[in-house]
């Protein structure tokens, strides 16, 4: 009887351990930004690309119904492919303001980039050393964050915006 109880206990323990390992295998170990949807953006101060005195903070975002914050650089090839969608968005939709944050770039190159492809941004800020990018949870560019007037992140796009994501943004802001 005693031996049977020990066997049952060991059996339950093995099953339990296998269950834990199985659960562990199911877990996705790739970094995912989904957990950041619904969190709030706070405490940032973004200087204008041409002018250090001029800057925006959370107050600017509160005034807009929606704001799309886009990190870009002239040296970033995928930024060129997504640029047409940003231009479309700035032309078509009045519900959203677009902020461009020029990431680890030379001012001259950034200005030439916008001259060449067009400027979809309502405000262009600079992040020379990348410190601002950490405040927004960025880990590579291009990356875009859609926030509402309460500064809540409602969508985060890692990589260039494509047609599918563009349509999703339009749906979210209407």
């Amino acid at each position: 009887m005693k031996a049977n109880i020990s066997k049952i206990v060991i059996f339950i323990f093995i099953i339990f351990s296998l269950f834990i390992f199985w659960q562990g295998l199911k877990k996705n170990n790739n970094y995912d930004t989904r957990s950041l949807i619904g969190t709030k953006i706070s405490n940032f101060k973004l200087s204008e690309i041409n002018n250090d005195v001029q800057y925006i903070s959370e107050e600017y975002l509160k005034k807009n119904k929606f704001t799309l914050i886009n990190f870009f650089a002239s040296w970033c090839a995928p930024c060129r492919t997504e640029h047409k969608y940003l231009l479309n968005l700035s032309n078509e939709d009045m519900n959203v303001k677009i902020i461009g944050i020029n990431f680890k770039d030379k001012k001259k190159n950034a200005i030439n980039f916008l001259k060449e492809l067009g400027n979809p941004y309502n405000f262009v800020g600079k992040d020379l050393e990348g410190r601002i990018s950490i405040l927004f949870g960025i880990y590579g560019i291009p990356e875009s964050i859609l926030v509402d007037s309460n500064l809540i992140i409602i969508k985060k796009i890692v990589g260039p915006i494509d047609q599918i994501q563009y349509n999703q943004i339009l749906q979210l802001i209407q």
């Binding site: 970094y31 995912d32 930004t33 957990s35 950041l36 950490i134 949870g137």
Partner: peptide
Amino acid sequence: FLISKYGEW
């Protein structure tokens, strides 16, 4: 601070 920006990962 970093967890609030990037999650627990």
